[in-house]
Structures are given as structure tokens and as C-alpha cells.
Design a binder for these strands. Sequence first.
DNA 1: CGATTGGTTGACCGAGATCAATGGACGTGG
DNA 2: CCACGTCCATTGATCTCGGTCAACCAATCG
Lengths: 232, 232
Amino acid sequence: MSASIHASFNASRPCPAFGALSQPTGSPLQGLAATARRIHVESGAEIVAQGGQAAYCFIVLSGCVRTVALMEDGRRQVGAFYLPGDIFGWDFLGEYDMSAEAVIPSVLGRISLRNVEQMADQDPALARAFRRLAVEQLRQAREHMVMLSRMTALERIASFLAEMASRSGRAGQAVSLPMGRADIADHLGLTVETVCRSLGQLRRAGTIGLERHGFRILDRVALASAREASVH
Amino acid sequence: MSASIHASFNASRPCPAFGALSQPTGSPLQGLAATARRIHVESGAEIVAQGGQAAYCFIVLSGCVRTVALMEDGRRQVGAFYLPGDIFGWDFLGEYDMSAEAVIPSVLGRISLRNVEQMADQDPALARAFRRLAVEQLRQAREHMVMLSRMTALERIASFLAEMASRSGRAGQAVSLPMGRADIADHLGLTVETVCRSLGQLRRAGTIGLERHGFRILDRVALASAREASVH
DNA sequence: CGATTGGTTGACCGAGATCAATGGACGTGG
DNA sequence: CCACGTCCATTGATCTCGGTCAACCAATCG
């Protein structure tokens, strides 16, 4: 069964043009894809370095990418996970404020930020699309802030699973978790141990089916009620 | 002394055109200010409602505004505080995802979002300015996320004070804290009691001078070291 | 001046971090 | 193909920071 879930991820949803971060169909963003150059990265490889000059943004074609902020004392924050169709790295000025790393072997499309600026200057629709992208990111960031400041460990895990499920295509299906427990912990502001315990709690309650690199929602209602503190 | 600090806020910095959220001098954003309509709001008044249709954005001319997300169970998150010169409410699509309330009696400039979109479509420089604004907000949001997920109570308070000090004009000066302890707590993901205790700790250590509506940095080095977990 | 609101301080408790040990998956070399 | 080693996930025991509950105090306002 482990294999089946993992396979269902590798087969993957048919890369929905521009996914979670994109605007509705016919987005002017699609014009950008034409200028993209394919990049292959191995598991764990750094794609952009925190503090480096921002020159490119990327679209995930396959695999999974995480953004990471690292502090001197080792405390780590995983900003977001990017799945096929998602764009990242466009939202930087001057220098990247987080590094980006491949969670698993991935294929990316690389787009010059200079191009983006130029095309946006010439095409108000594209500029507008980027404003919308920014606004959507801000909304997500605010939601994440509420989670980090006000939700319990169990609520965070439930929210995370629900989000991954909704991003991974249709409901009821097996959902892939390409990232390790440590990544999840650093994304949710928890420790690995607490992540494990909360996941185990949901598994034991029969809410989810769980394995190393994937899960399946067994009781949608229970999962929703475990989230509790949704933002309105 | 209480009076002196408070007075120094009311006299206030001379409203720096577009403050914390603006771009460098000569910003194309200034053109927008011409279309603004002056609005006076009393202390505690709701300026926009969470869930309402977004039609306007605002620039703070005097006073202080907070954005607030409220959950059914009463848990509250204060997103940000806006001081004179700051713009808020532009980063919404369709509906406001947080409400905005006056912390103290304030004067605002109200700008139609429809105008903003139109002017941005016609003026690439303005569109670019808004992209920069968005990117800057995202950077701040990410920093705040790190704080909420990884910093101790003392570190959060120290960071907050340092930020307020740097926003409130020149260093070494008395800094106003127009918002109450509850607002600070909900902004930092703490409780009122913990905010008090941490502030008291810094006061007793001689790091800051403290009173109800303001503070003063006495030991800049100690405050910086109390922050510890800066995002490198 | 009393009343109401907001700030401060103390005592206690609990969710989650920390420390420690074990188990299972995967990859490498014999 | 199996033995071993490494890495990661899991589980348990204990500790701690910050939340909760409660009392008191100080400002502001009628």
C-alpha cells in the first residue's frame, strides 16, 4: 500500500498549468512559461540561497520544493512547500530572504525575474495577475500566522493534512507527503516528536490512514472538527 | 514622565509622506494621495469589517490602526499596527480578510481601490511600486511567522519593542505604545499576563524604561541580545 | 469620588519541548 | 541475496515555559 500511495504521487496530477498560486484559467501568467528553462535538481539540493541576489523565479514541473529560513542558532522555519504547478521565488526584491531546496528529485522551469518585470511593465494584465498572486500569498501568510500563534499541535496537523489533501487533487484519494517529519515540524512550528504523536493520535482515532510518505483521509468530518480554529 | 512620552507621540513625527510601507522618496504612490478623502475615526471604531467587500484602502495620517482576525471561539490575532504614513487595506481581493480598527482617535486618507487598479494599469511605475509594497509585506509576514513559531516570549517582546522604536523615528527617543497590552499579546501570540511579565523583566533588568503608553530604550545592546533569534 | 477598565503580580497547571531508547526502511558492500 | 549501517519515525519519561485562574492596583471617566 505504501507503494500504491507513492506511485499515485509520482504519476501525479497532470501538472495543472499554474496550480495553487495561479489565477483562474487563461491566466496571463502562462505566457511566462514559454521563456522557462528546464532545470533538474536532486533530492536535498539547494535551488536558491538565502541572502543571494534574486535573479530567477521558478515553476515546479514535478517533485516538491521547500523554502527555508535558517537562524544562526539552528532554529529553522519552513515557509512553504511547492508542488507541481506552483510558482516560487518571484516575491523577492534584491535578495532572496529564504533559501529553496528540493524535497525530492524535482524538475523546475526557471524564469528570469528581469523578464518578468519587463513583461509586467508592458502588459497591465500580467501586472494585475502578479498583484493577485501577491495578495493571495499574503492571505495565506496571514492564515499561517494565525495557525502558528493560536492553534494547538493537533489543530495544526489536521490543518496541514487538509491543505495537502486539497492541493493534491481530488478528495478521498491517497495523498503523498514527500517531505519528512522534520520538514513538517519546522513548517508548523512544532518538534518532530510532537508531529509524530499528533499524527499517531489521528491514526489511532481512525481519522486518517498513515504511512511514511503518504496518508489517506478516512473520516473527513473528524478531520474537519480537529481543525477547529479555522479563520472564520 | 508619562505625559512627556505621550506628548512626544501626539506631537508625532511629521508624517513622512509614505512611511514604513512605502518605497524610497519620489514614490509614484504619492500621486494616489491626491485622490484621498479625509476620514476621522474615534478610538476603537471599526474601519473595515472582516468579510466585507473591499472597496477602499487607507493611509494613516495620524493615530494608529490595527488589523484583526477573529475566530468563532474568540481567539484573536492582531495582524499589524499601522502608524502615520502607513498604507493598509490595499492587499485584499474581493473581501477583506481581516477587520481594521482604530487603536486611538485617528485620521485616515481613504482611497478607492478601483482608482488604484485603474491608475496601476496605466502607470507601470505605480504597478511596480505596488509589487514592491507586496513583496515588502510578504517579507515582513515571513519574519513574523518565524517569530510566532520559534521565538520565546522575551524574544518576541524585545523584537516588538525594537521594531516599534525603529518605526517611531530616531533612536534613543521615547517611543509611544498607543495600543493596549491585549493588542500586543494578540499580535505576538502571547497572553496579556506574559506580555506584562516580559516587559517587567526588561524593565527590572534596566534594558528599558517603561510606562503605560510608552517606553524608552536604556540599553540598546541588552535589547538586541534579548532578541537573539533574528532571521540572520 | 466611586466605578469601570486595563495593568501587574502570584500560584498553579498543562501542552509541548527535551532527552533517551527502540524500531523499521533503505542503501551499500560483501 | 543477505548483513550491516545509517537515517528517520516512533514511543516513553521528564521538564519547562507560558497559559490559566485569581487577586490586587492604578488610571481614566462619569
